[in-house]
Amino acid sequence: MPDQTRAELASRLIPMLQEIQEELGYIAPEAVEWLSEHLGVSKQEIFGVATFYNFFRLNPPGRHEIHVCLGTACHVGGGEKLLDTIREKLGIEPGETTPDGRFSLERVACVGACALAPTVVVDGEVHGRMTQRSLKRLLDRIEREDREAMGGK
C-alpha cells in the first residue's frame, strides 16, 4: 500500500535525525537536504521537526559538551547559578558553541540523578553535588588537560 510506505518513510524521520545527531553531533543543512530526498518530506518539514524537539541541535557541538541540569532538584540546589558561571566563563549562551569549537553549552531538563543535585554533565559524565568551587575546579581541569594535549603534539 503506497500510503503505508509514505507514512512509514515519514515515521523514520525522527529516528534518522537521532542517528545523524549521534554520529555527526548536530543536524547539518546537508543532512536536512539528504533526508528530504530520501524520506520524501520537504526540508522545511524536517527543519520544523528538528527545531521542535530539544534533543536536536542545529549547530555543531564543541569538543567538550557541557550540559547543566535544571531539573527541579537541581534548580532548588542552584543549577541556574552554575549555568550563569559557565555562561560567563565561556562567553556563550545555552545552545551555542564557542567559535573555536571547543565548548558547547546546553541546559537540560533533568538527567535523572536528582539525588545528586545539582548536576553538570561534561562529555557524558555526570558530576553531582556541584558547587561553585567544584565547578571551577572541573573547568580548570579540562582547560589544563586540553593544554597538555595540545602541548603534547
Binding site: S11, L13, I14, P15, L17, G48, V49, Y53, F55, A109
Partner: peptide, 25 residues
C-alpha cells in the same frame, strides 16, 4: 522509539504525532 526531548510528547496525541515523524503537537 526514542523521544527527542519534548515534554509535551507525554500527551498521547502528541506522542503519536511524534511516532508518525511530525512535530509533537
Amino acid at each position: 522509539m526514542e523521544g527527542a526531548g519534548a515534554f509535551v510528547c507525554g500527551e498521547e496525541t502528541a506522542l503519536m504525532a511524534s511516532i508518525e515523524g511530525r512535530r509533537g503537537m
